[in-house]
Design a binder for these strands. Structure first.
Lengths: 130, 130
DNA sequence: ATCGAAATTAGGAATTATTCCTAATTTTAA
DNA sequence: TTAAAATTAGGAATAATTCCTAATTTCGAT
């Protein structure tokens, strides 16, 4: 794994141009405009490779399919569990502190990749239908 | 939604007895021992209801299907993105502080349900095959 | 540049995870 | 006790993703 292909480059370009946390399906449609005969399996395979290479991040969603984010700058995410909206934010609670706390509590020295806050956003709270 | 049924009670019992973050499929198999003719759709439907009622929590996984956790006590999760292991831990960085930070940065007063740390655990770091 | 090995591709089949549908049964509450 | 509302089992349908294969592209050593 790691040979050049214009398909993989087109996918990464799409991720750089669209900072909107697209799903795999959405990435596929964006890429189709650059590479009209790319196949969906190629898109899925390369998304996984790019995640593994650390070029993009996978966002695990509560509602709907997973989403992806290009890491132009280190940041965290707050995700609404009702509407699925994703809010980027820049945290100041540092990883070192959490890292030490994890080691103390679970006895496992994890490398932290990201911190995600799950909750209910303001709009969903006021549009409360329950 | 909210009538008593022994099926739903059996699912909640399974969640209370198995603090191992099971998948929906695993919950189905555990429940089968109590309710041998329960159907998988009933399990899925009730899992979703119990999540909505706040009795159990859905854990969004990077690898594999989603997992569920009975909330015997408020806690956070650290999830290994490689092996899928879930570590429960009790954080001391309080929600209020993060809440205020979110409001300041994204201008949205979210209710925080949970904080999840995604990373790579010690075992996966040392068994590094890359 | 040329050639063989390794990696990647398109396209579609297969698989996995979950939701939806329907008629029958169970629960509720008046 | 009874009718309305909720829930169920079972299976079909859908959604999301991975797998398979033969053809093509890329790479690296000449």
């Amino acid at each position: 794994m790691n040979n050049y292909s214009k398909q993989r480059e087109a996918i990464l370009d799409v991720m750089k141009e669209n900072l909107v946390h697209p799903t795999a399906e959405e990435i596929y449609h964006f890429v189709l405009e650059k590479e009209p005969q790319i196949s969906k399996s190629t898109v899925y395979r390369n998304i996984n490779i790019l995640v593994e290479l650390g070029e993009i991040k996978k966002l695990n969603m509560t509602v709907g399919p997973d989403r992806y984010d290009y890491l132009y700058k280190e940041h965290s995410h707050a995700i609404c569990e009702k509407c699925g909206n994703i809010f980027d934010f820049y945290d100041d609670f540092n990883k070192d502190k959490i890292s030490k706390e994890l080691l103390k509590q679970i006895g496992n020295n994890m490398d932290i990749n990201s911190i995600t806050i799950y909750g209910i956003c303001e709009d969903c709270k006021s549009n409360n239908k329950k």
